[in-house]
Structures are given as C-alpha cells and as structure tokens.
C-alpha cells in the first residue's frame, strides 16, 4: 500500500522496472484496436470542431454534413472575436488562474506543513474541519458570497473570482498527506537545534522537499480554475469575462451560429491542447501521481 509520497517517487521507477523485467503482459491486436477506437472517439469531436469552424453558414446546412476542413476558418475566427473579445478573456483567465494557483499552493503548503509536522492546540480539530469540507460542493455557499460581492461592489471584477478560490481544503489535505511521510521529522529537529527560525526551516528544509507535491497541486489547481464556470458566470459577464464565461456568451449570443461558435471554441481550446500534447508525458504522470493509491 503505497503512500502518496512513495508513489510520487516510485511510479516511474516501478514502471521502468516492470517492463524491463518483461513481467507485464504484452498487448495483442484486440487491445490495439480497442485503444485506437477510443482514441478516435476522444479526438473526433475536436477535429469536428475544426471542420465546422472552417465552413460558412450555408455550407454546413447540408446532408451529409461536411467532413473535411474548409477555408473559412480565419474569417469565422475573426467574426467570433468581433462578437466576443476572446483573447482578452484568455488573458483574464491566465491572470485569474495564476493568482488562484499561487495563493492555493502557498497557503496550502504552509498549513499542510503545520498540520503534518507541528504540534499545536487544535491541530486535529482544525484539520478535521478542513477535511470535512472537501466533500461539500463549494457552490452551495454562492448566495451569501454573491451578496458580499455585490455589497463590496466587486461584481463584474476579477477579484470576485480570485478571492473565494484562493484556498482549497483539498490542497491542505494533499500537502499534509505528502509531507507527513516525505519530510523526516529528525531533519526539522536538527534545524531547530541549530537555532534556525521556523520560517528559515520552512524555506530551507521544507520547501525543497515539498516541491514535487506543490507542482502537482499547482497543475490541478490551475486546471480547475481555468475550467471553473458556475461562480465566474454569476459574478462576471461577457464585458469582462474569463475564457469560459466569454465562450458561453459566444455560444448563447444574439445570433448563435455554429460555425462562429466552433471557430471561437477552437481559439479558446486548441492552444491549451497544444500545451497538453507537448507536456503530455508530464501531465499524465502528474495526474496519475495525484491519484495513485494502493
């Protein structure tokens, strides 16, 4: 039964070892066929986005529907950008998700460390409280939250999205679980005996050890913030949107046209997909590490 910390360290190694030893069963043709089919189903809707996004309105209204990429892609993208400034929305999203990621990783590492390694009154109760709330959908608190934001005059401002998401109970839990085992208590005590301040201990001893888990948490948080829709929809509008709100606005615009919407969807989705493919190996590893259990 692997702990999180062991898994993060050992998953790649184990994989290497097992295949080298030839213990893993080798895939037959059936496996390949099924996996190729799954791959096609996974990718086809994305390809089809491009197909529709590259046709004019009347070219699409045909049977059979078009299957190949056409020439109107850039015209449609330009039209989508006229209807909704998606580039600004993407920048907004990068800013919002970045701030949320920074805040979450920082705050959660700090308190994850405290819960894992420091003895203090209320440690267990506070941690239990944190743990309990990971299972409650945060959107159940949106009504008072919305009323706050309205009273503060923050509706339609980005900070209304950033602030409530700055912390994550899950993040605290995640960091604690990692540090409990990854961080040798003796090392901390040695530092303490040497007279280093707690903050210095954190900076010089804890942070380097916590780094792999912080990276995984950062990736998960960024993806979550980037995809978040419900709360941003409540407090923002297409005038100052995140990419999801802007895209939804385009989809429900005055004159919803499939080709324009698909072209806009491409603009908002494909850059991320490229990053995803380039960093694919690391991301796959990160998600599997974040998820591993025995």
């Amino acid at each position: 039964m692997a702990t999180l910390e062991q898994t993060i360290r050992t998953v790649p190694r184990r994989r290497r070892r097992s295949s080298a030893a030839g213990r893993q069963l080798t895939a037959g043709p059936f496996t390949y066929i099924v996996l190729i089919l799954v791959t096609v189903i996974s990718v086809f809707p994305l390809y089809y986005t491009m197909v529709i996004g590259s046709h004019t309105n009347s070219e699409m209204a045909k049977s059979p529907p078009p299957f190949s990429v056409n020439t109107s892609l850039f015209d449609n993208m330009r039209e989508a950008l006229k209807q909704q400034p998606l580039f600004r929305d993407i920048l907004n999203s990068i800013f919002v998700s970045g701030m949320i990621t920074l805040g979450t990783v920082a705050f959660c590492t700090l308190s994850g460390f405290a819960f894992a390694k420091l003895r203090f009154r209320g440690n267990k109760i506070l941690f239990g409280l944190t743990l309990g709330t990971t299972l409650i959908p945060p959107q159940l608190g949106v009504i008072p939250l919305y009323m706050y934001m309205a009273k503060l005059g923050w509706i339609h401002h980005l900070q209304a999205v950033i602030l409530p998401n700055l912390v994550s109970a899950f993040g605290v839990f995640f960091m604690r679980q990692y540090l409990v085992n990854a961080m040798p208590t003796e090392l901390l005590e040695a530092g303490w005996v040497d007279g280093a301040s707690t903050f210095r201990i954190f900076r010089t001893i804890v942070l380097p050890i916590a780094r792999p888990a912080m990276a995984v948490l950062a990736m998960l948080t960024f993806l979550f913030a980037w995809n978040d829709f419900f709360w941003p929809l409540l407090v923002l509008n297409s005038h100052n949107a995140t990419v999801q709100v802007g895209l939804a606005g385009l989809g429900q615009g005055y004159i919803p046209q499939q080709n324009i919407i698909m072209a806009g969807t491409m603009l908002c989705t494909f850059p991320l997909l490229v990053v995803f493919v380039v960093l694919g190996k690391q991301i796959v590893g990160g998600i599997m590490q974040g998820a591993v259990k025995g």
Binding site: Q83, A150, N237, Y254
Partner: peptide, 13 residues
C-alpha cells in the same frame, strides 16, 4: 455589453 441579459444583471446589481 453585448447581451441584454448580462446588461440587466449588471444594471440590477
């Protein structure tokens, strides 16, 4: 603002 629904949401708040 493009959409009147958005516009009214903003105006009413």
């Amino acid at each position: 603002i493009e959409q009147s629904g958005d516009y009214w949401n903003k105006l009413k708040t």
